[in-house]
């Protein structure tokens, strides 16, 4: 049985990491990162089967691709706290000569990262390619990917969504972070996404909805269901309803903190709402 308290403690610590990372360099994307913290913690601590160490090919283990690369703070924090590199390296986020670039990349050789992302809409195709390679290699492990909801406005996603269904990519679980926000405002006002469940189903996917996307137990249950639906000829989509900025009250339910760092005072408030659990880097 997963230790929910330990996972929640890690979640709080990751939130602190995110706030401190973006505050230090006065840039980065805290809103989406905070909204997906519980998902990343669950994914790397409980859901994925991974080997020790890191190699690019990822044979005989589950693989994750982050398509909405701007939420790199949560990705880096969880990778570090899952043992891919030293947590102290989080100090170098967005600094010159760092492996922790503003958006994730393989270019600097950071363990855990298998594709560059940041220019949106490309990760679904990459995930499908890796899923096809797993099938060719007769490797029964899964591919996981995460995409922003606003990111679905990029047309390449729909090419990929069509391909995955048409080619029975049933070893892929693509999760959409449904927070309803993007840089210019609510997705409903910028460019409405419509009924995503119906859209994915119409394209031939199996859809799992996780309504409490900031609740560890709900995520574990939903992802467990998603996993049980793999291997049945259809790709699986998880619609993860999250709250942007979750865990820091003044950042929640708004797009205002999509790409803005807290000032000193705001940082203190945010950290006070998330007291140290495992220890700061």
């Amino acid at each position: 049985m997963p230790n929910i308290k330990a996972l929640n403690d890690l979640t709080v610590q990751v939130r602190r990491d995110i706030l401190r990372m973006v505050h230090k360099v006065n840039s980065g994307h805290p809103g989406g990162s905070l909204g997906c913290t519980e998902f990343f913690v669950s994914l790397y601590q409980e859901i994925m089967e991974t080997k020790d160490g890191f190699d690019m090919d990822g044979k005989d283990e589950d693989i994750f691709f982050l398509s909405n690369g701007h939420i790199s703070p949560v990705y880096y924090s969880v990778l570090a706290r899952s043992g891919y590199f030293e947590v102290d390296e989080l100090n170098t986020f967005r600094l010159i000569d760092s492996r922790l670039q503003g958006h994730p990349t393989t270019h600097e050789g950071l363990p855990g990262v298998r594709i560059a992302s940041g220019s949106l809409g490309q990760g679904m195709s990459v995930a499908i390619g890796a899923a096809e390679a797993k099938k060719l290699n007769k490797d029964n492990h899964l591919i996981y990917s995460l995409h922003g909801d606003g990111e679905l406005q990029e047309g390449q996603n729909w090419e990929a969504i069509m391909y995955a269904a048409g080619n029975n990519i049933d070893n892929l679980i693509a999760t959409i972070d449904v927070n309803g926000q993007q840089i210019d405002g609510a997705t409903d006002t910028v460019l409405p996404l419509g009924d995503l469940k119906k859209k994915f189903e119409a394209f031939g996917w199996t859809v799992v909805e996780i309504e409490e996307g900031n609740n560890i137990e709900a995520i574990l249950n939903g992802m467990s269901t998603a996993k049980s639906l793999t291997g049945k000829d259809k790709p699986v989509c998880v619609l993860l309803q999250t709250i942007m900025g979750n865990g820091v009250d003044f950042m929640m339910h708004t797009h205002a903190w999509h790409g803005k760092a807290p000032n000193d005072e705001q940082l203190e408030i945010g950290l006070a709402q998330n007291p140290v659990t495992l220890g700061d880097y």
């Binding site: 693989i63 298998r114 195709s125 990459v126 890796a130 096809e132 090419e159």
Partner: peptide, 24 residues
């Protein structure tokens, strides 16, 4: 080992990139 992606070149390039993860 042949993958027909249809009239979707962007997706083709992305799939190709993903296939290298796994040694293809």
């Amino acid at each position: 080992r042949f993958f027909q992606v249809g009239i979707a070149e962007a997706n083709m390039i992305g799939i190709a990139a993903g296939m290298t993860v796994g040694g293809k």
